[in-house]
């Protein structure tokens, strides 16, 4: 199996979502991408729902530095300590877990532990996990800072990057969503408009 790329560690955790701090500044997974962490023997799968880069110390804000610099990059090269003062974090919505080889697309019994390693899922894991779209139920019903349609559309776009026949997988996912959102076609259409090829 292709190695998954380790990206950071869990810093806050709850039943439905957890926050990961990235090892490297700005090395954030894209919105909607599938990541995983572990809790005991179980893999926990989650979808990136929000990312943020801010100061390490709470309450302390960054100040402008580039007035005399030619480019943005120069700001960072001329002040190498900046990378130690800032952090990149992202939040992910838990969409399923793996128990003894079985992929279960509902919430795990326990949330991930703090300092649990967080990985980007490999192409194979994405294929495996998205062989059924039941996890979309969790996304549809989650309260977020952003409209959940944005997240779902982003997630489906990410998934489709992984396969050759993008149209088929998007139509399958769309039909599944049409089932969940059968009485709310306005929402359905706003998702479909965002994943249209």
């Amino acid at each position: 199996m292709e190695d998954s790329f380790r990206i950071g560690e869990v810093v806050t955790s709850s039943t439905s979502r957890f926050t990961t701090q990235c090892y490297e500044l700005y090395v954030l997974p894209p919105l909607g991408s599938l990541i995983k962490t572990r809790e005991g023997p179980n893999d926990i799968f989650a979808v990136v729902s929000r990312a943020e880069t801010s100061s390490l110390e709470p309450g302390r804000r960054a100040v402008v530095r580039g007035q005399n610099q030619e480019s943005e990059e120069e700001i960072y090269t001329s002040s190498p300590h900046l990378e130690k003062l800032l952090k990149s974090e992202f939040e992910a919505i838990i969409v399923g877990h793996r128990q003894e080889e079985h992929i279960l697309r509902y919430l795990p019994p326990r949330p991930p532990r703090i300092h649990g390693f967080v990985y980007l899922c490999s192409a194979q894991e994405v294929t495996e996990f998205t062989s059924s779209f039941e996890f979309l139920d969790l996304l549809v019903n989650t309260q977020l800072d952003i409209p959940s349609e944005e997240l779902i559309a982003a997630c489906l776009r990410e998934i489709s990057q992984n396969v050759e026949d993008k149209e088929t997988i998007l139509i399958q996912a769309g039909r599944y969503l049409a089932g969940i959102l059968s009485n709310d076609t306005r929402r359905l259409k706003s998702i479909l408009n965002r994943i249209r090829l």
Partner: peptide, 10 residues
């Protein structure tokens, strides 16, 4: 694309 998703579902 949209009609192939909506036909038979919604």
């Amino acid at each position: 694309f949209i009609s192939s998703i909506l036909n038979g579902t919604a």
